[in-house]
Each structure stands twice: as structure tokens, then as C-alpha cells.
């Protein structure tokens, strides 16, 4: 049984246009025009319990609209949506009791209160049995290292600490499903790693289903087996992350350190992109030539001292998919 099942889900908005300049401002006083925007346009997918799915897309692609519908904040224009066997917006209170959410930009904690007081207030709001609460809190205090700031007001803790506290707050009631929106935004590399490690642990050990939306594609690369890409309201890709990489991983890179300096060491089927003395960089595509064929070809003509093949990073691949609209051309 899928935990989330979405069929032909759409959300349309009316947006008003603004005129510019002094005269435009005066004209705005009297009239305003509307256009309809299809923020989410007939998307369908299913998510099984225990999955950790990356939901990505450029700005304004329809990510947050989808998440708002999944969390019951927005009612769809059309289509079917069932999460945990419930229709989120129809049975809000029952539904959200089994869901956790962290929106990286803002906190669910009470700004002026020590972290621990917010957490114990949430215990009452979610009606968490004292035994469960104690056990969960104990676990999260260890794994998220909350103790150093547990008694500090939220406004006085760092962004990384706040994110840890928010993750704890979202998980205290043992949700089946966890929504994470930009959980690593604004954090340094170490803090990001720590958060990612924790998310992975929650997913594996507790079996919590996680939906992750993020701008930071390295989050997706490190955490998700499955990725969904949305742009202009359409679901462009839904599947395995490594399959995506194989399909679109653009040019591979071969860096060769020659034993001596050659003038223009060109080679068939690869493109010489950079030469710095005896150090030369080639770009090649896996469709035309394999790495070993290429190396063989070069070593037949020139003397090689050292070499290195570089695979494109997943971030690079996805960025190319956005920028060159690779998926839309299929």
C-alpha cells in the first residue's frame, strides 16, 4: 500500500498584473488584470512507506505548491490525493497528527522560549504519551546533540542548532511521514553533513517516509535513491537517481599529465579544452568513446606520465537538466 498516492493533481492560481511607473501606478488605482497560472499541472505519483524521495525543481516550479497540498495547507483544483489513507485538507487534525514537517526558513518553536519548553509544549499539543516522549527526547538529545542549547531561547541559538531542534520537534510524535523543505539552507558544510546523517538515520532506523525538497542538490545526491523533478508544474522525471545520471551525465573529463610538452596534442573523438604546459584536459562523451579506448588512443601517440578521469557530479547533471531543459525535449 502506497503511503502517498497522487493522481492527476493540479493547482491553478489567479495572479494580478501590475503596471509600472507613475502613470502605471495611477492606472493600478483603477484596474487590475488577472492571469491564471498552472502552478501544478496534472502530476501523478506514488510513494511507498519507508522511501526517501527528493522532490526538486528550479524556483517557482511548483515544488512548494505540491508540498502545501500534500500537507493539507492547500486544496487542489483537481485530481486525487490520499496520504496515509486520508485526504489531507479534509481531515486536517487527524492527518497532521501523523505527519512531521520542517520548513527550513522558519521555525515551529516559540521564539522567546528555551528549546526544552517548546518541546514539552509540543508534547501536550500532540498528546504524546509521557513514556514515548521521554524515550524519543532522550534519543534525539543524543543523536542531534541538543544538550548544549536545550535551555537557551530559540532566538539566541544558531541556525544549525535551530534546525536540529526543529527536526527533533517534528519527530517527537513518531510521524509516519516527514516533510523537509530546505533543511540545510544557510548551513555550513559540517552542519549540513550532520543534518543529512540524521535524516538518513531516521529513515533507515525508524522507517519514516521522507519527502525532501531542496535547492541544494548535494542533499539529494547524498540522501535520495529516488528523485522527482518538477518544472512549470509538470513532473518531468520520477525515478532512480543513478539512472538519471547515466542518461544525462554530460561530458566526462580526462586530465592527462604528459611526460613532455606537446604542441596541440589533438585526439580523435575527444575535445581538447585546456592546455597548461604538459597538463592537458579533454572532454569526451560515453556515447562516442569509452575511457579505456581514449586512453589507449592517446598513449599510442604520446608519452603519458599520469592521468585522471573525472565523472560529472549529480549537481552538475541536474543543473544542466534545468538550464538546457533536457527533459522537456524528450
Amino acid at each position: 500500500m502506497a503511503i502517498i498516492s497522487v493522481r492527476e493533481l493540479s493547482k491553478h492560481f489567479k495572479v494580478s498584473k501590475h503596471n509600472r511607473g507613475t502613470m502605471g501606478a495611477v492606472r493600478n488605482l483603477f484596474s487590475r488584470q488577472h492571469t491564471t497560472v498552472r502552478a501544478v499541472d496534472e502530476i501523478s505519483f506514488e510513494i511507498q512507506p519507508g522511501e526517501l524521495v527528493g522532490y526538486i525543481g528550479p524556483n517557482g516550479a511548483g515544488k512548494s505548491t505540491t508540498i502545501k497540498m500534500l500537507t493539507g495547507l492547500l486544496v487542489p483544483t483537481s485530481g486525487e490525493l490520499s496520504v496515509n489513507g486520508l485526504v489531507p485538507w479534509k481531515e486536517r487534525q487527524n492527518y497532521v497528527a501523523r505527519v512531521g514537517a520542517v520548513f527550513g526558513q522558519r521555525t515551529t518553536l516559540w521564539w522567546d522560549l528555551p528549546v526544552i519548553e517548546s518541546l514539552s509544549l509540543l508534547q501536550h499539543i500532540y498528546k504524546i504519551p509521557p513514556g514515548r516522549f521521554e524515550a524519543n527526547l532522550k534519543e534525539f538529545r543524543e543523536t542531534l546533540e541538543l544538550d548544549p542549547f536545550l535551555n537557551t531561547p530559540v532566538r539566541a541559538i544558531s541556525l544549525g542548532q535551530r534546525m536540529r531542534a526543529d527536526l527533533c520537534a517534528a519527530l517527537l510524535h513518531d510521524p509516519d511521514l516527514l516533510f523537509l523543505d530546505e533543511p540545510t539552507i544557510g548551513l555550513d558544510v559540517v552542519a549540513k553533513e550532520r543534518i543529512r546523517g540524521f535524516i538518513q538515520k531516521v529513515n533507515r532506523q525508524r522507517g519514516t517516509t521522507v519527502i525532501l525538497t531542496t535547492h541544494d542538490l548535494s542533499d539529494v545526491g547524498k540522501l535520495c535513491q529516488r528523485v522527482m523533478i518538477i518544472d512549470h508544474g509538470k513532473l518531468l522525471y520520477d525515478g532512480n537517481l543513478s539512472a538519471l545520471k547515466d542518461r544525462f551525465s554530460g561530458k566526462r573529463e580526462l586530465v592527462v599529465e604528459f611526460a613532455e610538452e606537446y604542441a596541440n596534442p589533438q585526439i580523435a573523438s575527444a575535445e581538447l579544452t585546456h592546455q597548461d604546459g604538459s597538463r592537458v584536459t579533454y572532454h569526451f562523451s560515453r556515447d562516442t568513446i569509452t575511457a579505456s579506448e581514449l586512453i589507449g588512443g592517446i598513449s599510442a601517440q604520446y608519452r603519458i606520465r599520469d592521468l585522471e578521469v573525472r565523472e560529472p557530479e549529480i549537481e552538475e547533471t541536474i543543473r544542466r537538466i534545468y538550464e538546457e531543459r533536457l527533459l522537456e525535449r524528450i
Binding site: 486536517r92 497528527a97 522558519r106
Partner: peptide
């Protein structure tokens, strides 16, 4: 506007 109302809607308590 700041999204705090959304946060309230995400809690299982009378709005």
C-alpha cells in the same frame, strides 16, 4: 504573510 498560520495548520489542534 510570514507563514506562521501555516505552521498552526500543521498541528493537530483546533485552529
Amino acid at each position: 504573510r510570514r507563514g506562521f498560520f501555516d505552521q498552526l495548520l500543521l498541528r493537530p489542534l483546533n485552529i
